[in-house]
């Protein structure tokens, strides 16, 4: 049995809203897979379908080759963190893990192990209601780890975390993946996944927009883009727009130009005598790659800084 999540052809409607529109992807073991898309793209719904909380109208979702409902010890096949706030506030953190452990036939010793693993030892006898968001995320991860599963699914684990928390969680997820686990992490911010995801599934409007390694994504987004350094930013923008390029200001003296090859840019600027200091092939960030892919998929987009003037 392979440690994977396989999703194929999932479709689901909530009334007239299409939540999933043929969602298909596979999460492989040994790496963190980023599951990225704007709010409402279907990330959470997909995870809920995988975990049997929602039923898809069509398609199938398998964990380790089997539908979730058929798993006898579900938590030793897949660990999930959906909503870190889902706690009975008056129950202590340790007792929260204890009932989960008991439901899987696990012991209190396993509970103390995962508490140790996520660094909550000193707080384990406190009521979960008094936990900060960061501590709740740790507690949720501890719960996901209880059954020592080969597959992990975390929905927006970075939400509400301070910098320390983000650093910790990144390191933690990376080490889990290094052990050979399949780790699916959703986020609506690509930047959060920049350093840990080896693979990215970008979704929008219930569909997969891109499913590629991080390296491939960056290469694709960098293509045809040129970084231009100039002191006369507005003149340069006017000149290049006239030449048919799409221009975005990325800094006080930096422009990112697409849709026009480097030599044409140089010619267009020369023709209007716009000074510039540097023209280089652009090295895109993951963020840019993501913005490119989801531009059409964002449902309620505000005009962003990248829009051409």
């Amino acid at each position: 049995m392979e440690a994977t999540i396989e999703v194929s052809g999932l479709r689901k409607r909530f009334g007239s809203t299409v939540a999933l529109d043929g969602m298909s992807f596979t999460v492989r073991p040994g790496q963190v897979t980023g599951f990225v898309g704007p709010n409402g793209a279907g990330k959470s719904t997909t995870m809920r379908v995988v975990l049997g909380l929602d039923a898809a109208d069509e398609g199938r979702a398998l964990v380790g080759g089997r539908p979730f409902w058929s798993l006898r010890n579900p938590l030793s096949h897949v660990g999930a963190l959906l909503d870190a706030a889902a706690l009975q506030p008056s129950r202590t953190a340790r007792n929260h893990l204890l009932w989960l452990a008991h439901s899987q036939g696990l012991t209190a010793r396993r509970v103390d192990e995962v508490i140790e693993q996520v660094g909550l030892r000193t707080a384990k006898r406190r009521r979960a209601g008094g936990y900060s968001l960061g501590m709740r995320q740790r507690l949720g991860i501890a719960a996901a780890l209880l059954g020592d599963p080969p597959v992990l699914m975390l929905d927006e684990p970075f939400n509400g975390l301070d910098l320390d928390g983000i650093v910790w969680i990144r390191g933690f997820l990376r080490s889990l993946a290094t052990e050979g686990r399949a780790v699916l992490v959703s986020s609506h911010l690509m930047s959060e996944l920049q350093d840990i995801a080896g693979h990215i599934v970008v979704v929008g409007r219930g569909r997969v927009l891109a499913d590629a390694s991080v390296a491939d994504l960056i290469a694709a987004a960098s293509r045809d883009r040129v970084t231009l350094r100039t002191t006369a930013r507005s003149e340069a923008m006017t000149a290049l727009a006239h030449a048919g390029a799409t221009v975005a200001a990325t800094d006080r003296d930096t422009l990112t130009v697409s849709g026009l090859a480097a030599e044409h840019i140089v010619a267009a600027l020369g023709a209007r005598a716009v000074p510039f200091s540097e023209v280089t092939a652009h090295r895109a960030t993951l963020e840019e790659a993501y913005m490119d892919l989801t531009r059409d998929a964002v449902q309620f987009a505000a005009p962003g800084p990248e829009a051409a003037r």
């Binding site: 073991p29 030793s76 009975q88 129950r91 204890l98 009932w99 989960l100 439901s103 012991t107 059954g147």
Partner: peptide
Amino acid sequence: TTPYRSRRRPGRAGFPQLLRAEWTKFRT
């Protein structure tokens, strides 16, 4: 990559375990 395999024996998760979990939920 070698997929992860837990070295623990998975616990039994039948109805008695479910009862125990619900009892733990109640008493805590």
